[in-house]
Computed example of a mutant assay.
Amino acid sequence: MSGKKSTKTEGNSGSEPRYTLAELTAHAKERFSVRPEVIAGAMYGAAGELFTVAEVQDQIKHFMKAKVD
């Protein structure tokens, strides 16, 4: 992702970088092949302010498979 990155959480130097939801949403099409609205829906109510790419991909996968009544 281009632009500024959020800092890694202290003490987890070997883990994936974490980004704000705004940063991830800005790159929705390039990184996740979805529209920004999909990320907004998938991450609605998510706890925390910083997320890894893998966490968001998992949430998108669950969101897209959810049944609609």
Rank of each mutant, 00 (worst) to 15 (best):
H27D: 03
K65Q: 15
S33P: 02
E49P: 05
Y19M: 02
S6M: 12
A46W: 10
R31E: 02
D69Y: 10
A46H: 08
A26L: 06
E37S: 14
R31N: 03
E10H: 11
E49M: 09
E30V: 08
F51G: 01
E16Q: 08
V53Q: 02
G14W: 14
F51N: 02
D58T: 04
S2N: 15
A66S: 15
S13P: 11
S15E: 15
K61R: 07
K29M: 15
A42F: 04
Y44Q: 13
F51V: 02
Y44K: 11
L24N: 02
V56M: 01
S6H: 09
V68T: 12
M64L: 10
V38H: 01
S33Q: 04
A22Q: 10
K8L: 07
E37Y: 13
E30W: 10
E55M: 00
R31V: 05
E23P: 06
Y44S: 09
V53R: 02
Y19E: 01
V38A: 01
S15H: 09
K29W: 13
V34G: 04
R35Q: 10
G48E: 06
N12M: 15
K65D: 12
H27K: 07
T25I: 09
A40W: 03
E10I: 07
H62P: 06
A46R: 09
K5Y: 10
N12F: 13
T52G: 03
E16S: 12
K67F: 12
T9C: 14
E10D: 14
K29G: 15
A22L: 08
M1E: 11
E49Y: 05
E49A: 10
V38S: 00
K29F: 10
E30F: 12
A47K: 13
T52P: 05
S33L: 03
F32G: 01
T52K: 03
D69N: 12
Q59P: 06
H27F: 06
R18H: 05
K65M: 14
F32E: 02
F63H: 01
A26Y: 03
A54E: 07
V68D: 14
T20E: 03
F51S: 02
E23C: 10
Y19Q: 02
V38E: 00
S13D: 14
V68A: 13
K5C: 09
L21M: 12
V53E: 02
E30A: 11
T52R: 04
E30Q: 08
T7Y: 08
V38Y: 00
L50R: 07
T9F: 13
R18K: 15
A66R: 13
V56E: 00
A26P: 04
F32W: 03
G11A: 09
E49H: 10
K5G: 12
A54G: 07
Q59Y: 06
R18P: 01
A46P: 11
T7D: 08
A42I: 05
F32S: 01
Y19A: 01
A40F: 03
E16W: 05
R31A: 04
L21V: 11
S15Y: 11
G41V: 06
E55I: 00
G45S: 12
E23K: 08
P36Y: 01
G11L: 10
K61C: 05
E16D: 08
V34I: 07
